[in-house]
Amino acid sequence: MSQWVIKGLRSGIKSTRYPRTSETAPGISPGLPVATPMSAELAQAMAARCPTAALEPARTGIDVNLRRCVHCFRCARGGDGAIGWERERDFECAGVTSHGDNFGRVFTRSIHILVVDTGDCGACLNEVKQLNNPYYNMHRLGFFFTPTPRHADVLLVVGALTEHMRLPLRKAYDAMPTPKRVVAVGACALSGGIFGPSFMCAGGVGDFLAVDVEVPGNPPAPLAILHGLLVVAGRKPPAPLYRRIEEVDGQG
């Protein structure tokens, strides 16, 4: 058995330094579209390309509703004026909802998380699982997964909320003791993603549960989810989920 101890020790430390410093390794995040200035017709054409209406034409360019982006990259590719897209560094994108809140001073350094998958494609869940791998190692930040809602502080929801998962999600939420917060991860949980509302899917969990923090992406990178957890712990400021071109330009 000592072979494993030696192997582990020789592998060294792989954990990212984030959040102390930013992470810049390639392939850590697909990024997200940024609000880009462009002409009105181009903005209309660009908005029509988006299958989930995540792009909204504005006066001087195009606004991005991050909650709807499903990473189809149609807006990023294509010859005519592609939309701006920040790749590797653009993972700090979690935001707090208008009625939501972070934990304040109550829990900052030790948070237990219950993960409930309400019907996604599996990519978001896999990214959530990557938080435990040596590269991200969320334990060092005080985040732990727990299998039972009784021990959970945060309910992390992925998926578009199928009819079948309504009751389990409600029961899990009710079984959690206060104070508790809800983090919705992924385009499916925020807006229904490519599935959208249908006879089976509610189109997001926002109407069913009071969501506090939203992490956009399809799937959001592990670092984005980590940012979301740090936001709910009050250790990082939230980011806007709606990127407006006016704010970029500084025009009113």
């Binding site: 309400t118 199928t162 079948h164 006879f199 089976m200 899917c201």
Partner: peptide
């Protein structure tokens, strides 16, 4: 539990 009705939609 995660049936999203993909064939239908």
């Amino acid at each position: 539990w995660a049936y999203r009705g993909l064939e239908k939609i």
